[in-house]
C-alpha cells in the first residue's frame, strides 16, 4: 500500500482547481447546509442541486461521474435510517408480514428516508469535489484566513504531514505481526483474545513512543530554525475578482434552490 491511497487531490488545471480555497470551502459548507434545510420530498430542488454538482464535476475536468463513483462511502450508514420508512406518520403504502412482525411503510416515512439518502449522497459528493480540487495545505491556509485558531490549524498541519510517516510505521508493525503469525493446519489461529489484544496494544504503545520521541526531534528542528513558541506563516492567498464572482454566483444558485424548495 502506498501513501497515495490517502491523497485524494486530483491534479488538473481547471477553473475550479484555480479558485481560492476559501471560496471552495465556503461554497461546500453552504451547499451542504442548503441540502440540510430543504424540506423532505422536494425532488425538484434536490435535482437542481445535483445538476450544480454535475456542473462542478464538469468544470473541474474530472469527468461527470468522478464524485459519483466515490460516493459509496455513505452507504453503510444508510442502514441506520431504514427504520424511518416505517414511520407511523402519513398514509400506509403497504403491509408486509415477516413472521410475526408487521411492517407498514408510509408515504411520509418513504419520503423522509429518500430525502435523508439524497441529502447525504449530495453532501458527500460536494466534500469529495472539494478535496479532489484543493490541495490539503491550501485548505489549511484557507482555515487560517477564516480565523480558525492557530493552534488547531497547526495541529492539523502536523497531523497531515506525519499521517503518511506514521501510517507507514503502523503498516510495518502490522506486516511484522503478519509475518510472525503462522497457523498450523487444523489449529485455531491467533491465540486468546487477551493475548491478541495485548499484541495490538503493545503495537499501539510502541507507535505512541516512537511518535512521542519524534515530536522531540521535530521540536529541536523547529528550535534550530528560530522557533520561540509563536508560529508564523505567510499569507500568500489573495481573493481575485474571479473568486468573488464564483462565490456570489454559487450563493445565488443555492438561494434559487432554496426558493424552489420552499415556495410552491
Amino acid at each position: 500500500m502506498h501513501i497515495n491511497v490517502f491523497d485524494h487531490y486530483h491534479f488538473q488545471d481547471s477553473l475550479i482547481h484555480r479558485l481560492d480555497a476559501r471560496v471552495k470551502a465556503a461554497v461546500t459548507v453552504a451547499f451542504i447546509l442548503s441540502n440540510a434545510i430543504l424540506p423532505d420530498g422536494n425532488w425538484l430542488a434536490f435535482a437542481v442541486a445535483w445538476l450544480v454538482l454535475l456542473l462542478g464535476n464538469d468544470l473541474s475536468r474530472l469527468g461527470l461521474g468522478y464524485t459519483f463513483k466515490r460516493s459509496y462511502i455513505v452507504l453503510p450508514f444508510v442502514l441506520v435510517a431504514i427504520s424511518v420508512i416505517f414511520s407511523p406518520l402519513g398514509k400506509p403504502l403497504a403491509q408486509w408480514h415477516l413472521g410475526f412482525i408487521t411492517l407498514i411503510p408510509t408515504n411520509f416515512g418513504v419520503a423522509r428516508f429518500f430525502s435523508i439518502l439524497v441529502r447525504s449522497w449530495l453532501s458527500v459528493q460536494m466534500a469529495i469535489l472539494l478535496v479532489a480540487t484543493t490541495q490539503f495545505p491550501d485548505l489549511i491556509h484557507a482555515f487560517e484566513h477564516l480565523r480558525l485558531p492557530r493552534i488547531l490549524t497547526t495541529i492539523i498541519a502536523f497531523l497531515y504531514r506525519y499521517l503518511f510517516v506514521l501510517t507507514d510505521e503502523a503498516l510495518r508493525l502490522l506486516r511484522a505481526r503478519e509475518a510472525r503469525s503462522a497457523s498450523l493446519q487444523g489449529r485455531k489461529r491467533g491465540g486468546r483474545l487477551t493475548w491478541r489484544a495485548k499484541v495490538t496494544g503493545s503495537m499501539v504503545g510502541q507507535l505512541f513512543l516512537r511518535s512521542y520521541e519524534r515530536s522531540d526531534r521535530i521540536y529541536y528542528a523547529m528550535l534550530g530554525r528560530g522557533y520561540t513558541g509563536h508560529l508564523r506563516t505567510l499569507n500568500p492567498h489573495a481573493m481575485t475578482r474571479l473568486d468573488w464572482l464564483a462565490l456570489i454566483l454559487s450563493l445565488a444558485v443555492l438561494s434559487f434552490i432554496q426558493l424552489l424548495g420552499w415556495v410552491r
Binding site: R161, V165, R214, A221
Partner: peptide
C-alpha cells in the same frame, strides 16, 4: 522527516 515538518 524530522526536519521537514510542514505540509509543503
Amino acid at each position: 522527516d524530522d526536519q521537514l515538518f510542514s505540509p509543503t
